[in-house]
Nucleic acid binder design. Structure first.
Lengths: 268, 268
DNA sequence: AAACCACGTTCCAAATAATGGAACAAGAGG
DNA sequence: CCTCTTGTTCCATTATTTGGAACGTGGTTT
């Protein structure tokens, strides 16, 4: 119908793309969506939307109550469990995370880059926190998280500049960097230090030290961080953890380079 | 091309169904799949498979290495995180799980029924286990897990019999029930007791006590269990935990009935 | 009651995207 | 040099999706 939709940018994924876009709508929403809610968001004809939803529900990607509320489907958990369990970088990071956790006694995160976000792949909780699990599987912006900024600090200036200029800065907290200039200055400092802070820039009251895991070819593999509530730890404490964090990141990078070297050979 | 495929059973999900079937193939495999592996499993023409994979990769549901290895995509984690965070039954179970965990000091599971399997939705670890997280999002058969058998014990005989007769019994361990008769006897006992055991029937060395969470209308909502290694706890210990587990299940059911009562009203 | 409206569901000709066979690259071995 | 395996591209055919409109259904107003 529309010959060239504005933001198709290169590739089209046909029917699947539309289905996943709809699934995204269902997932992004805060609460169960009704047929009409989705109709408004997706502005598709009734008939099409109806069939697409039927398909998604039949496949278990979306769950529907008899009353007509649509929520993300439980089958997604099964898929994600596999994606998580089979992720090789996460597996290799695990023991080093455990070590770091034992050393600091605080919450340790591991995250990788996906598109232009950090996705948290693993988390070891601080000893008895009241906090929920999760965060695992969630995505966060690059410009206001420790791991995200550590990732940025690995880029060449030539790649960094255009990327930063595309960012839409949103102030999650009063401390969030509000523009490219502030972020660039921070990245500069991170390059010098070799590690990054997040001083309540994403979540109020939460701060962390993070380091990038960098492969031998200088590409960003992922990041580790130690996180704690601001009321309990000051900047000095974070600095104390910086070396352990950096060391863990180095150890992970070494494991990565060792493991990823032999290609086809080590497959069996 | 094929006018009526054998097991289409009622509904067809068109293009999406094929894409998800392929995704399932990628996820089920133990290791990264190559194009040819998938070609064999799905017996589709090269052209079609190639395009479907391209679409899945473009959508982030499948990740592909430059070398041509296909693995479950990281985007799945994001979807699942939403599905998990927004699951209302899980949320309401959470505090009762915590209580049970504090009481027993052992691993507590919460699971619900999906299709004909138990899907684990939450887990509180035994204090310092070496064990990984996960299990969350994984599915297990009904006939060899505590929560699964507790679910079976909620069914009327009229529903139970046909369901059991369809089961393909697979012996995960020497203790797994091997036929309908043994399972029925166990279900009978569970009905009498009000709780179920899993005595190393699914994973060697692992046993649990479980109870069904049953709504006021007598339908199965989910199940809770306390799990421990067999070498550390005997049947007596499991029996000690049975009442706490049953009580937790009752409390969850009460919360469920209370929360789910007011429909549209409580939406806001 | 009748008229109205919001919500969902179902239908079907027309438009579009998926299909699958075959031809085309590119290595890897023999 | 030939051949086998693996992966990619092309394109006429075919099946699926599309989307407008008509049809239910229940709730609300006049």
């Amino acid at each position: 119908m529309a010959p060239d939709d504005e933001k198709d940018a290169g590739q089209t994924t046909g029917t699947l793309g539309k289905a996943i876009a709809l699934l995204e709508s269902v997932c992004q929403a805060e609460r169960p969506q009704r047929f009409t809610d989705l109709l408004k968001q997706t502005d598709q004809p009734r008939g099409s939307l109806h069939r697409q939803l039927r398909h998604l529900v039949a496949e278990g990607l979306v769950d529907a109550t008899p009353e007509g509320d649509y929520t993300p489907g439980l089958r997604l958990l099964g898929f994600a469990a596999k994606a998580w369990a089979r992720n090789s970088v996460r597996k290799l990071a695990e023991p080093h995370m455990a070590h770091l956790h034992a050393l600091t006694g605080e919450t340790v995160h591991f995250g990788v880059l996906r598109q232009k976000e950090i996705v948290y792949l693993d988390k070891l909780e601080s000893r008895q926190t009241v906090r929920m699990h999760s965060q695992v599987g969630n995505a966060a912006p690059l410009y206001c998280t420790g791991i995200g900024k550590a990732a940025l600090s690995c880029l060449e200036d030539a790649d960094l500049q255009p990327l930063i200029s595309q960012i839409e800065f949103r102030s999650f907290t009063p401390s969030t960097h509000g523009d490219a200039q502030a972020l660039l200055a921070d990245v500069e400092a991170i390059r010098d230090r070799g590690y990054a802070f997040d001083l309540e820039e994403h979540q109020p009251g939460i701060c962390c030290v993070a380091a990038a895991i960098v492969s031998a070819d200088r590409s960003f593999i992922g990041g580790v961080s130690v996180t704690a509530p601001a009321f309990r730890v000051g900047r000095e404490k974070l600095v104390d953890w910086a070396d352990p964090v950096r060391f863990a990141a180095l150890a992970m990078a070494a494991d990565f380079d060792r493991g990823m070297g032999p290609r086809r050979k080590s497959d069996l």
